[in-house]
Simulated scan of single mutants.
Amino acid sequence: MNETTPGPRLQRRALVVIGLFLVIMVIFASGAAVGALTYAWLTPAPTTPVQASFINAPAADALPAQPSAGLPTLAPATPATGADPLVLAVSRVTPATVTVIVNDGSSGSGVFIRADGYLVTNNHVVEGGSRFEIIYADGSRVTAELVGAAAEFDLAVLKVADKAPAVAVLGDSGAVAPGSRVAAIGSALGGFRNTVTAGVLSAHNRRLGDLDGLLQTDAAINHGNSGGPLINLAGEIIGINVAVVRGSGTDAAEGLGFSIPSNTVRVVAEQLISNGRVVRPYLGITFEPLNPQLASESGLSVVQGAYVQQVVANGPSAQAGLKVGDAIVALGGQAIDDQHPLPQVLLQYRAGQSLELTVARGDSQFKLTVMLSQRPAA
């Protein structure tokens, strides 16, 4: 058989067909790739544990030495008339926000809560330290002593010898609704003193490791922010920044910062200043926050409260008549919900006090009186 060479017109047709085929293949391949990528973005991440980072930072190369002569009196800045409320709020709190340097070279943040020199920070910032230095907003330095620490709340109180240069007010963390604008202030990475980041309050009553009842925010929180304030638009402290979750790979996350609520901070700080330690009242139960699904499964007519999982034999709650499957819906008249979680409300009371519980059992509600005892040593 003799081979023949295709003419120019046939060659062009062949090239067109091949070209169309290649275009179709490229489109198909691109579509498949986009589909796979979209699926990866939209599929929920695996429910594997994520690792939280406590956010103190090394202090070594970040903070220049400053003279320590004289304590400054730092008046809030005076923003222009009509300034953004967040600008006004930050101007009130910044002078009270400090950097905490520990003798081992690590650092964190802190904030003055009393004019007589008391400031609050995280326990993990000061843990293991014996010498503490405070750097004010203007860069001057003074020493501080440890008044007390509560590892179970990750809070600590330090004191400087003289009056505080400025004081921030502890607000009501339970009154701040999710979606409210907030700002975090602290010494990011140890050296970026009084860095301000803004966002919203994302949620109440989050649990992270051994800490529960935490506030969640999407305001950027970085290493070195530990112990610094989370504030509302009124310029009040609503939380003390403690940790951030970032994850990696398919668990990577952004905007997951956590703070200890000011309603917890207030009680713990008062006890540390008065007694050097915190004595927690004891109900003698284990529980989990109630939600609609759990309420439905348990035959309860309420959807908020603390669902009782276990009642300790001969404990205060057992003696009062509380049972597994009950839900505590109020303590001392305060409703229990995400913004007022049970441990936080209970912390307002002392061992030896009588406390009225409002309890849901099935479709009914009733009241019990519990005599609180002191939490047993771990």
Rank of each mutant, 00 (worst) to 15 (best):
S130A: 14
A360D: 03
A220Q: 02
P289W: 06
Y39C: 02
P281C: 02
P341H: 04
A36D: 13
H223Q: 12
A32H: 09
S130W: 00
E133V: 11
I24M: 13
D337V: 04
V302D: 06
V245S: 01
S130V: 12
A57P: 06
N241Y: 04
A89E: 05
G247Q: 02
A252L: 14
I27H: 01
P8N: 08
A219Q: 03
N123V: 07
V34F: 15
P72S: 12
S296G: 05
V126Y: 00
P316T: 13
V50G: 01
G227K: 08
V111E: 13
Y307T: 03
V312P: 01
M25Q: 12
G255W: 04
Q304Y: 07
L88P: 00
P58G: 06
A150M: 09
L215C: 05
A330Q: 14
T369H: 07
S173W: 01
G148M: 10
G186M: 04
G227T: 11
L290P: 02
H340K: 15
Q334M: 13
S298A: 15
I221G: 00
V279M: 13
Y39T: 15
M25T: 12
A33R: 12
S140E: 00
K367Q: 15
N205V: 08
R375Q: 15
H124A: 11
A32Q: 12
Y39L: 15
P376S: 04
L342A: 00
R114I: 05
G276S: 11
D154N: 06
V329K: 03
T264F: 03
L294T: 09
A62S: 13
G110E: 09
A59V: 07
V157A: 10
D162T: 14
L331S: 09
V182R: 07
V17P: 01
F192S: 08
G174F: 06
Y39I: 12
I328G: 07
P44W: 11
L189F: 15
P44K: 13
P95S: 06
V126G: 02
A161I: 00
D363T: 12
N232R: 08
L20M: 11
T94N: 13
N123D: 14
V160G: 01
E297T: 08
P67Q: 14
S107G: 14
L368V: 10
V17M: 10
P281W: 04
I55Q: 03
V311P: 08
R181V: 09
G325K: 11
S298P: 00
D172A: 12
G362Y: 10
V242H: 00
G305H: 11
S187A: 15
A360I: 10
V345M: 06
D210S: 15
S296D: 11
A151G: 00
A183D: 10
T369L: 07
S202G: 13
I18K: 12
G108P: 05
E145W: 01
P8M: 05
G227A: 08
N56T: 11
A269I: 08
A161L: 06
V359C: 09
A96G: 10
Q344Y: 02
V87Q: 13
A161Y: 04
R277V: 13
A149S: 15
L290G: 04
Q216W: 05
G199T: 07
I55F: 01
R12Y: 04
H223Y: 00
I134N: 00
T217Q: 07
I273N: 07
V126I: 15
A269K: 09
D172G: 08
A14S: 06
T264K: 02
L272H: 09
